[in-house]
Design a binder for these strands. Structure first.
Length: 616
DNA sequence: TCGCCGGTCT
């Protein structure tokens, strides 16, 4: 009888000897084949596969191998969900060496700022010192990165600085850059500058970029400009940092101008630049500009990374024009999910924010759910904020409150502020008063809280308590910041305050306001004075409101901005209800698109409606 | 094994 044919299984087994034996034959332990096969940014799944191979190879307790596994965790694109895993890996090493420890600190440093993990890095460093595990120059950049994450570790960072000096690493450029970044991050740009000035020959382009970023964060744009002009060499990051400096300092047009210069000079535009410029477009509400950048990204076939996609989602969410593209952000999100990109927690802020602005309650619920359940992303305050805003604007105040109850962290003042805004809008006086008083207690010098609380009372026409809140505010030494509106025309910035008569064309402006008033009255407008918090007569209130700064700016815009072009106004405070209504009507009656960026969001007034869907 | 920039809730 002939022997039975070899089954495929047996054939395979013949081809592949047990992996451990194969690998032992071809590689030494130091070469760590399973780990060297990992891609540069491995997913947790890929890391686990490599780990399984290590076990099969009998390397599951090798200090070197486990150290490399930790390095892979640190480089993983989603370190936060794998933190438990990193801890477990570290726990497998009897006596961790400096390499393993450094990479574990890096894992901790890379987790979300709100987590306890960055703080834990300092504790862990302390254990290293006490356990006589040596530290090296690699330890400190990671440790400082962790310190930069949370304000709770500011003093820890200063202690780390002392250790850097004591242990002789103060000359290391990487360590110095970490310190400059750390001081900038905790708003001590002066200390960062000391580091920067101290050893001029221990600086590289990163040091310059870091200090420019520090001044940018501090809104000291002139210093940024000076440093940018004098730095010995610039890379793409220098350019995008300077662009960001302009954007954060409110000099948005200048930022976009520098971007143009960068492109003209042939500096390679990188991911950060696209993100900066998209952010500038978003903040300016320049939908068309943002779309132009989007098409440029497509034209040069720039890789659609998660970061770029997120910036696009953010831009579309913020610029959302009424019918045109309010759901573009969500469509984009769906599309890149289909392409298999892995969203980050920031992506979800953009997505949830888009849902909130578009009033899409069910989509918001669905995305929030998939974020936590499918992607394992722990919600942060920003996500909660979007959800609360979403519920509140849809009138689901009870659900908003229930949601707050179920949060894993206590609400921050911003979130309470969202709820207070909802109380004002929906006329929930009792709840509004409770929250308002709580907020004033939390942040007594924040003028916005008093204004909102007074607004709650004003809505109920309780002028007595409106006056009491105003008194309380002044007795605390807090005053309502003066409102102003800006408009750009003829290459100049024109600034208006309420009732302003300083402008050279003031007479014409007030005549235009009269004309506006007449035409709106013909269209059926009647003023809503509930936003005026002074205890004055109704007639006087109408008068005060009529001269709000944005009305002067819009009137001026109607005079000088060519027909067919939108009127763009930037205002520091939030738009009042009546100015909002008036702007809507002007957009219809005068057939003019008006774009007002107020203290909290954009309002695109077009054909009688507003992109904020009347909730802000 | 490293650092700098960029996207986030009223």
């Amino acid at each position: 009888m002939p022997p039975p044919p070899t089954s495929p299984r047996r054939g395979l087994r013949a081809l592949y000897p047990p992996p451990a034996a194969l690998f032992r034959r071809h590689f030494s332990v130091a070469q760590l084949p399973p780990l060297s096969l990992l891609p540069p940014c491995p997913s947790l799944h890929q890391i686990r596969q490599a780990h399984a191979l290590l076990v099969a190879l009998g390397l599951s307790s090798s200090r070197a191998a486990l150290g490399h596994l930790l390095a892979a965790c640190a480089a993983s694109p989603s370190p936060s969900p794998s933190l438990a895993y990193s801890r477990a890996v570290l726990g497998q090493i009897d006596v961790p060496n400096v390499f393993a420890c450094n990479n574990f600190i890096r894992c901790l440093a890379r987790s979300a700022a709100g987590d306890a993990a960055p703080g834990e890095a300092l504790t862990f460093y302390g254990r290293m010192r006490r356990g006589s595990i040596p530290t090296n120059n690699y330890t400190f950049p990671f440790l400082l990165q962790a310190c930069s994450k949370g304000s709770a570790v500011v003093y820890g960072g200063a202690q780390v600085h002392a250790h850097v000096v004591k242990l002789g690493h103060a000359g290391d450029v990487f360590v110095r850059n970490g310190l400059v970044h750390f001081y900038c991050e905790c708003r001590c740009v002066g200390d960062a500058r000391k580091m920067f000035d101290e050893l001029p020959d221990r600086r590289d382009v990163v040091t310059w970029n870091a200090i420019i970023a520090g001044y940018a964060r501090d809104e000291q744009v002139e210093v940024c400009e000076e440093l940018f002009a004098t730095m010995p060499e610039r890379d793409a990051i220098s350019w995008s940092t300077m662009i960001m400096g302009y954007v954060q300092g409110g000099l948005l047009e200048k930022g976009l101008g520098l971007f143009r210069e960068m492109v003209e000079r042939g500096v390679a535009v990188n991911e950060a630049t696209y993100v900066s410029v998209l952010s500038a477009s978003a903040q300016l509400g320049l939908l068309e500009h943002g779309q132009f950048i989007h098409s440029a990204i497509k034209a040069v076939k720039f890789p659609m990374t998660i970061t770029v996609a997120t910036a696009l989602v953010d831009m579309y969410a913020k610029c959302g024009c009424i019918a045109l593209s309010k759901q573009e952000a969500l469509q984009l999100f769906e599309r890149f999910m289909e392409e298999g990109l892995c969203p980050t927690s920031v992506t979800f802020v953009g997505v949830l924010n888009a849902c909130s602005r578009a009033g899409l309650v069910n989509d918001g619920r669905r995305h929030f759910d998939s974020m936590t359940r499918v992607h394992g992303i722990q919600p942060e305050m920003e996500h909660y904020g979007c959800m609360v805003d979403l519920f509140a604007r849809s009138g689901l105040v009870a659900e908003a409150l229930e949601f707050v109850e179920g949060m894993r962290v206590p609400p921050d003042p911003v979130l309470w502020g969202t709820l207070l805004g909802a109380c004002k809008t929906h006329g929930l006086v009792d709840l509004g008063v409770t929250i308002g008083n709580k907020l004033i207690e939390l942040e007594p010098s924040h003028d916005g809280h008093y204004v909102l609380l007074a607004g709650v009372y004003a809505k109920a026409r309780n002028w007595h308590n409106v006056a009491k809140v105003r008194q309380l505010m002044s007795s605390r030494g807090t005053s309502k910041s003066a409102g102003w509106s800006l408009i750009e025309a003829g290459g100049r910035v024109h600034k208006f305050t309420a009732g302003d008569r300083e402008h050279e064309r003031s007479t014409e402006i007030y005549q235009t306001l009269e004309t506006i008033g007449q035409r709106l009255a013909e269209a059926g407008y009647s003023p809503d004075v509930s936003c005026v918090l002074h205890d004055i007569g109704e007639e006087e209130k109408v008068h005060v409101m009529k001269e709000h700064s944005e009305r002067l700016a819009i009137a001026f815009g109607l005079m000088v901005i060519e027909a067919g072009h939108p009127i763009r106004v930037v205002k520091n405070l939030r738009v009042c209800g009546d100015c909002h209504e008036v702007s809507k009507m002007i957009s219809k009656v005068f057939e003019r698109e008006i774009i007002v960026r107020d203290g909290s969001r954009f309002h695109h007034f077009k054909e009688g409606s507003c992109s904020c869907l009347d909730y802000w």
